[in-house]
């Protein structure tokens, strides 16, 4: 079937099988490899993207389900090579190590900044429950997102 998806503001059109997963369309058709494949069961968040502004796990969606919606991947968070507030904070605070989980935390962090009134440590920690990091122990990531929220709200 012919599927056209809008990813990071650009349309990608391709003939794919109906069983094609959204994550595979993003990685293999659009060539955006920042969205990772980890558990494939919806538990790790490595494949997280924003769909019409809401966080979704793209390993649990068919590409066909996302037609007509606006998808933002980790590549779409930065503009003209300029990292967004969450990415900048994760980088400055050296919150990540291997970086496999970067897409999940950047996407969720961005969603938190845009949608949560409260962005204290406990709230951010609980909001990040669906993203797994095997290296950092979470503390530096949560702190980086809390800090990014503080800075954004100051501005």
């Amino acid at each position: 079937m012919r599927i056209r998806l809008n990813i990071n503001g650009k349309d990608y059109e391709s003939d794919v099988e109906p069983r094609t997963l959204l994550v595979d369309f993003i990685r293999d058709v659009a060539g955006l490899k920042g969205t990772h494949i980890g558990c494939e069961t919806g538990s790790c968040g490595a494949c997280m993207v924003l769909l019409d502004g809401k966080p979704v796990k793209s390993c649990l969606m068919l590409a066909a389900q996302a037609e007509g919606k606006k998808i933002v991947t980790v590549e779409g968070l930065s503009e003209g090579g300029k990292l967004n507030a969450v990415q900048k904070s994760l980088s400055q605070k050296k919150a990540l190590q291997c970086g496999f989980c970067a897409a999940g935390f950047s996407i969720m962090g961005t969603w938190i900044l845009e949608n949560e009134q409260d962005t204290d440590y406990e709230r951010v920690k609980s909001d990040l429950a669906g993203v797994v990091c095997r290296c950092s122990g979470y503390e530096p990531i949560i702190n980086a997102i809390v800090e990014a929220a503080k800075n954004e709200r100051k501005d």
Binding site: G45, M48, P55, V56, D127, G130
Partner: peptide, 9 residues
């Protein structure tokens, strides 16, 4: 239920 992404989907 699950996490925010699961509840959003």
């Amino acid at each position: 239920v699950g996490d925010i992404a699961i509840r959003s989907m």
